[in-house]
Nucleic acid binder design. Structure first.
Length: 687
DNA sequence: GATCTATCAGGCGT
DNA sequence: CACGCCTGATAGAT
């Protein structure tokens, strides 16, 4: 069960130096504070010789600090429904009489959040299964939006503006989430990210349709998607400012766009590197930092992973060169205040990633404490504020460190991990990239005994039926409106980067009878692996699969390959006790990919091109490929999409696997195999 | 080609 | 309301 711990933050210091008497020279009080407390805003402006000025800090006795910290850890008012009546313990170690009043003020936590939570608990009780249709707790307002949009395909351009509340000034920390809560929030995050990606790609393709291909600058789908979701009230965590980790977001999660971070509530600034609650909104007038992005934009940064020397912002010209002294204001002051109160900040690293042109990948690396803050001379000779951040111990391994490790594994696996490799290419060059086999926990080396299949083997009669495949005549690549686009319902299934736009019952890729080149945008899954995969042994899931490369959401991963059996063969094999795959039993996760029902009320899952229920079995007991080792999960990161390209027989599509989210390197891939008891609880088919 | 630089269109938060 | 900000895509240079 989770609890929201409100921050009493700075109001707990009534005995801070008052304006009466000799003022502290390093502290200047503002005029007319709107509460009984004195607002203390240090105004130290670095002058020409800023280094002579000491860093301003509020005076605070060790006892005061102790009181504050203990009140934070002792007070865990629980806002969840079934503990709502629990009286709050207000007799904490602090002698502050105003705490009761403060507590009651903070008790009034967002009605939205509470009722949403209550509704959900009512609906699901203690059931351990999450309904994919359950409402998002955090962002979705009570009154669900509803005016029907006339045309879903064009609706992006006629989005009705809705309540567009700004960010909350309520500072909270979310702690002690139970397993079920974690799963729920994870699910909310997953679906929100899927929605963002679907909108982003849709926005780009719409813009292209409007302007015609290759005309002008490509639309900023990242901005458009965020805009649409903001208008719909679909941004997460806008109703409170969360200090510490964000529910549903795990360390190591990766994002491709700054706006995506805003939508998820991980970092609320579209460009700025320091996100903070501004002093004007804070209960005592002092700003508090909540997250930073370490992106290499400042020359004075030093980043060694667990320890960061972060440069404050400001003082740069439009070419990002340091040209003047920084000031202790905005985010700079917020970081200093966060250090003062011992409040942790989230750290997101922006890392250059090879596959993306002059673009970055953002990795959530967890929580850091600010240990020091000082004014220093930067490399260009101007004064900059520097913050020494140390990563809080006991967190999962840093995502950026894992990415670096995966990077080195790709180039020199044996020197990174001298033992454990059973094969440096399971596919024996049948795939375009090697598939590693790695086990450093036991002596199992079962996978080496199987022949490797690159693609599914279909029976000859699969090709015999429906041989009159019509191909396109697009010699220089398919364009909108070509015959192959028509076969897919008038639109291509993939964007120009080969990402799946929207899941469909089946996808027709261009095939042998098409005149288009191999680079045609309608040939994606037929080209095989694009990510270096590794089959590995784990204590939890037996054999599993992970990637050494980032897999972007919507990207093709690999085929689920096997040997297709006739009904008679399948019966024999079953009696033999062999493990068979029934492609029709995979959960229809493709329908979640590109599902925009929260945006367009009349959105319906695609039904065209349609496909009859699949009725064949696939044998993987002798020949198999890497997919067979993927684990089962009810919240998978990989989906199954049926694809046809080398024959036209609806009964025998290829089972193609696509990423449902951005999958960081070395994170285990998982599929929803469907009904659990079919597999006797096995975590993957081929253990 | 691959990498860098300049430029441009942008949106959000303060 | 203007402006600053550790964007992101693209064209052109090297």
């Amino acid at each position: 069960m989770g609890s929201i711990v409100p921050f009493q933050d700075l109001n707990l210091f009534p005995e801070l130096p008052q304006t009466t008497g000799a003022p502290n020279p390093s502290v200047v009080t503002t005029t007319a504070p709107p509460t009984p407390f004195t607002f203390l805003t240090p105004k130290i402006e670095p002058k020409q010789e800023p280094l002579d000025e000491p860093i301003p800090t509020l005076t605070q006795t060790p006892q005061q600090r102790e009181n504050f910290l203990s009140s934070l850890s002792n007070s865990t008012p629980n806002f969840l429904p079934n503990s709502e009546t629990t009286p709050l313990s207000t007799n904490t170690s602090s002698s502050n009489n105003d705490q009761t009043a403060l507590y009651s003020e903070y008790f009034r936590i967002s009605e939205l959040f509470r009722t949403a939570f209550a509704k959900r608990l009512q609906k699901y009780g203690d059931v351990d299964v999450l309904d994919p249709d359950s409402q998002a707790i955090v962002p979705v307002p009570e009154e669900q939006p509803p005016e029907p949009e006339p045309n879903p395909e064009r609706a992006l351009s006629v989005v009705v503006s809705r309540q567009n509340r700004g960010r909350s000034n309520e500072l909270v920390r979310v702690t002690n989430l139970g397993i079920e809560d974690q799963r729920h929030f994870r699910d909310v995050v997953r679906r929100t990210r899927m929605m963002y990606d679907a909108l982003r790609i849709l926005a780009i393709s719409e813009e292209e349709k409007r302007k015609g291909p290759g005309h002008g600058r490509r639309a900023r789908g990242d901005l458009r998607a965020a805009q649409v979701m903001r208008e719909r009230g679909l941004w997460l965590n806008r109703d409170k400012r969360i200090v510490g980790s964000i529910p549903g977001i795990e360390i190591g999660d990766i994002f491709f766009f700054r706006m995506e971070l805003c939508v998820m509530g991980l970092h609320g600034q579209a460009q700025a590197g320091i996100d903070y609650l501004p002093g004007s909104q804070s209960s005592n007038g002092e700003p508090i930092a909540t997250s930073i992005i370490v992106s290499g934009g400042y020359e004075d940064d030093e980043d060694s992973g667990d320890s960061i020397t972060y440069t404050g912002h400001g003082g740069q010209d439009k070419f990002s060169r340091q040209c003047m002294h920084q000031k202790l204001e905005g985010g700079n002051l917020a970081l200093e205040r966060s250090m003062h109160y011992g409040i942790e900040v989230r750290v997101i690293r922006g890392i250059k990633y090879e596959n993306r042109v002059s673009s970055k990948v953002y990795v959530y690396d967890g929580l850091y404490n600010i240990h020091d803050c000082y004014f220093d001379v930067g490399k260009s000779g101007f004064g900059v504020y520097k913050y020494k951040l140390l990563r809080i111990a006991g967190q999962p391994q840093m995502g950026s460190a894992i990415m670096r490790f995966a990077e080195s594994l790709r180039t020199r696996p044996l020197s990174c991990r001298p033992t454990g490799y059973l094969s440096l290419d399971m596919s024996q060059t049948r795939e375009n990239l090697p598939v590693f086999l790695f086990n450093d926990i036991d002596s199992d080396h079962d996978p080496v005994y199987y022949d490797y299949l690159r693609n599914t083997v279909f029976p000859p009669y699969a090709f015999a039926q429906g041989t009159n495949i019509t191909g396109c005549e697009c010699v220089s690549g398919c364009t909108e409106g070509c015959i192959c686009a028509m076969k897919n319902g008038g639109e291509f299934a993939y964007d120009h980067n080969g990402l799946l736009l929207r899941g469909k019952p089946v996808i027709f890729e261009c095939g042998i009878n098409c005149k288009c080149p191999p680079t045609c945008r309608n040939r994606v899954s037929q080209h095989g692996l694009r990510h270096r995969l590794e089959i590995f042994r784990s204590k939890e899931t037996g054999w599993g699969v992970r990637s050494l490369d980032i897999i972007q959401a919507g990207a093709f991963i690999c085929e689920y390959a096997g040997v297709v059996l006739t009904k008679e063969q399948a019966q024999v094999f079953t009696m033999n006790g062999d493990t068979l795959i029934y492609p029709g039993r995979f959960s229809e996760r493709w329908a979640e990919w590109g599902d925009l029902s929260q945006i367009f009320t009349e959105y319906v899952r695609p039904t065209y091109p349609s496909i009859p229920p699949l009725d064949f079995a696939m044998d993987v007991s002798r020949m198999r490929n890497v997919a067979c080792y993927m684990s089962h999960s009810i919240s998978p990161n990989v989906l199954v999409q049926y694809v046809l390209y080398d024959h036209n027989n609806f009964m025998f599509p290829h089972l193609m696997l696509f990423a449902m989210e951005n999958i960081p390197p070395l994170r285990e891939l998982s599929i929803d195999y469907g009904v659990a008891d079919e597999w006797n609880g096995k975590l993957s088919i081929c253990n």
